[in-house]
Nucleic acid binder design. Structure first.
Length: 334
DNA sequence: AAATTCCGCAACCGCCAGATA
DNA sequence: GTATCTGGCGGTTGCGGAATT
């Protein structure tokens, strides 16, 4: 069965809306509601297809639309939700009153995506970019002649530029983490444990008894702000795993709700007052910082220490800023 | 000052899922 | 059970203004 296009009438107007068209649409919906979108244009005296009217209304004319730049908080919410559910813009929009899916989608594509890339984070996976080309390019750009088979030597070259012992230690750690990320698969987040441990949704729902049809959006509310900092932060704690859609669904469809999480706690990556919410929730429950990999523990511990030291949450930004200033043509693009 | 390139955003397109006859 | 309709969603396009050369 092949559906005909929604708007087959070639005489219907397309393109930007005129103020008088907007006025007609608003007037009609204000007094009659939108009802059947297909009938609406005719009833409202508009030479547009219903779909176009619906889009204009929902994305622009609706009275509860919130316009203007996105706040840092909104940005964090978008990033965190995106890390969980991906490009589900309407679902993300449901968590941001007054924002439309289209607006969020545009904001993602024009701002956040670039920002993540500039920070060396893959906007699709929300993981640090570890592709070899990226690192090899970096190597070439800093003029190294001593790769010596060590794929991570670019970091060392940068270190010589910085000549900073503190940075050396941090970058050494970063190297270890990247190496680990590139050679091992991060454990999937046991979402049910996470939720249980956080006293999900103010105790309004007991997921363990209400079953797996649990309201995913409610779950998302509980994880919407894992990086409670005033600074932009998208780099996940290396030990917290990625809240990808698959693992979310796996957790939601798994029957092993009682299994112990393999993951360390969801680290608050700053010491900002806002982080107390997460910390409080964690303190009310079983600690999640159990580790089953002793070989990784030193890296994790060091990482946590660095994060603890980074009270302003700007560690990654600083590092990347320094890297980019050392190498003006740092390959930021894809 | 003019030409060109870049960027952000509104709008369109095609597909899908749910509702209904 | 099936065909059709409608609304909704996500990806993409193209225009207009800003920035750069």
């Amino acid at each position: 069965m092949v559906r005909p296009p929604c708007c087959t009438d070639a005489n219907l107007k397309k393109g930007p809306w005129m103020p008088e068209e907007d006025e007609k649409l608003v007037d009609y919906i204000s007094s009659n509601g939108h009802g059947n979108w297909k009938q609406l244009p005719k009833l409202a005296g508009l030479n547009r297809c219903g779909k176009s009217c619906r889009l204009r209304w929902t994305n622009y004319l609706r009275p509860d639309i919130k316009r203007g730049t996105f706040t840092d908080e909104e940005e964090r919410v978008i990033i965190n939700l995106h890390s969980v559910i991906g490009n589900k813009w309407s679902r993300i929009a449901a968590h941001l009153p007054g924002r439309t899916d289209n607006e969020i989608k545009n904001f993602w594509n024009t701002h956040i995506r670039k920002k993540l890339l500039q920070m060396g984070i893959d906007p699709n996976t929300h993981k640090p970019r570890t592709d070899l080309n990226h690192l090899m390019n970096l190597s070439q750009l800093v003029g190294t002649t001593q790769l010596g088979g060590n794929l991570f030597s670019p970091w060392s070259n940068i270190l010589t530029l910085q000549a900073d012992v503190s940075q050396l230690a941090k970058l050494q750690l970063l190297q270890n983490v990247i190496q680990m990320l590139s050679t091992t698969t991060l454990p999937s987040l046991d979402y049910s444990t996470l939720l249980g441990s956080r006293g999900v949704i103010n105790g309004e729902k007991n997921l363990r008894t209400e079953g797996l049809e649990a309201n995913i959006d409610s779950l998302l509310n509980a994880t919407v702000n894992p990086f409670p900092s005033n600074d932009f932060q998208a780099v996940p704690h290396p030990s917290e795993g990625i809240l990808d859609h698959e693992s979310l669904n796996n957790s939601l469809t798994s029957t092993s709700y009682e299994k112990e999480s393999l993951l360390p706690k969801l680290a608050s990556t700053s010491a900002s007052p806002e982080s107390s919410t997460v910390n409080q929730m964690e303190s009310n429950s079983e600690p999640l910082n159990h580790r089953n990999s002793s070989s990784d523990s030193s890296v994790f511990e060091a990482w946590e220490k660095i994060l603890d030291d980074e009270t302003d949450g700007s560690y990654w930004k600083d590092i990347l800023d320094q890297l980019t200033s050392s190498s003006p043509s740092w390959p930021l693009g894809e």
